[in-house]
């Protein structure tokens, strides 16, 4: 009956049920983000050095950021849509924290576009968004709209988040310092979202193995779009072909952890 919460030094020491209660709470989210967002404004430290970009570099960066905005908009709409169909209260609370993370990602990317001199980000996104990421967004929201919890969660928290995690982490290694800080902050959130997706789906697939076929179907449906989006992004980031990492590998690794294999 105490009003105080026990301080948890390592959540992994907790029993499974207590672990879920802890990591799906507002309190856990708050402690997690406070560590890396404190002192930042729009995702970077105010004293981060702005590196001069050539016209061509700036143009490519604007295209990449516009496509990231489409991905984050899809993630924002997807996460908030999942709140309505989540099977329990703890999951709803986690998805509410994820929705605000995605809203923040979209906001810091739009702000970065503004810093790069884009006066009307909405129009620029409309002009530069790739067909593959737009199609991915359409299919993700269709899954959420159909209230297919496992399939929608898989598309959102495994496929989309793993795709963004991999791309942003790679891009941050070669980006200008401000963009790099913005992306590194986003990556920290994505790791949490992927962990939630893998845990939740892994548990449900263990309980109901027959659902595996449906997830495999969604994966096959979205794989081509993911690979196409990877290819476009790597090209726009400007990484030479000889140095391009296999971006698909991390995505496929996340999927294989769920026992879905590689198609």
């Amino acid at each position: 009956m105490s009003g105080t919460r026990e301080r948890v030094s390592d959540v992994h020491d907790l029993a499974p049920e207590a672990f879920e209660r802890e990591v799906h709470s507002f309190e856990f989210w708050f402690q997690a983000v406070e560590g890396y967002l404190h002192g930042t404004t729009y995702g970077h430290r105010p004293d981060a050095a702005a590196t001069p970009l050539t016209d061509s570099e700036r143009d490519r960066l604007v295209t990449v950021l516009c496509n990231y905005c489409v991905g984050e908009t899809a993630a924002l709409e997807g996460a908030s849509g999942l709140v309505a169909i989540a099977p329990n209260r703890m999951t709803k609370v986690f998805l509410a924290t994820q929705a605000v993370d995605e809203g923040r990602h979209l906001e810091v990317l739009l702000h970065r576009l503004g810093e790069l001199g884009v006066a009307n980000p909405e129009a620029e996104i409309e002009k530069r968004a790739s067909a593959s990421i737009l199609e991915f967004r359409r299919r993700l929201l269709a899954l959420v709209g159909s209230k297919d919890w496992e399939a929608a969660l898989f598309a959102q928290n495994v496929i989309l988040e793993a795709m963004e995690f991999t791309v942003f982490q790679t891009h941050a290694q070669t980006a200008d310092p401000i963009t790099a800080q913005v992306l590194q902050g986003i990556v920290k959130d994505e790791r949490r979202h992927i962990g939630f997706g893998e845990n939740e789906l892994g548990r449900r697939l263990r309980e109901s193995p027959h659902r595996r076929a449906r997830i495999g179907e969604v994966k096959r449906d979205l794989d081509a779009l993911v690979i196409e989006t990877f290819a476009e992004t790597v090209r726009d980031i400007g990484i030479p072909a000889s140095e391009r990492p296999d971006l698909g590998r991390a995505y496929l690794a996340a999927v294989s952890r769920l026992g879905l294999g590689v198609s």
């Binding site: 507002f26 908009t73 924002l76 709409e77 908030s80 849509g81 709140v83 309505a84 709803k92 609370v93 998805l95 509410a96 924290t97 929705a99 605000v100 995605e102 809203g103 923040r104 979209l106 906001e107 909405e122 929201l141």
Partner: peptide
């Protein structure tokens, strides 16, 4: 949460993400 998806502009959607988390809290 429903207002995020129904918002007519992305800035309102972002605002409702914060309200969603407030209400969850």
């Amino acid at each position: 949460a429903a207002l995020v998806g129904a918002a007519p502009d992305e800035a309102s959607a972002r605002y409702f993400a914060t309200q969603t988390l407030d209400e969850a809290r």
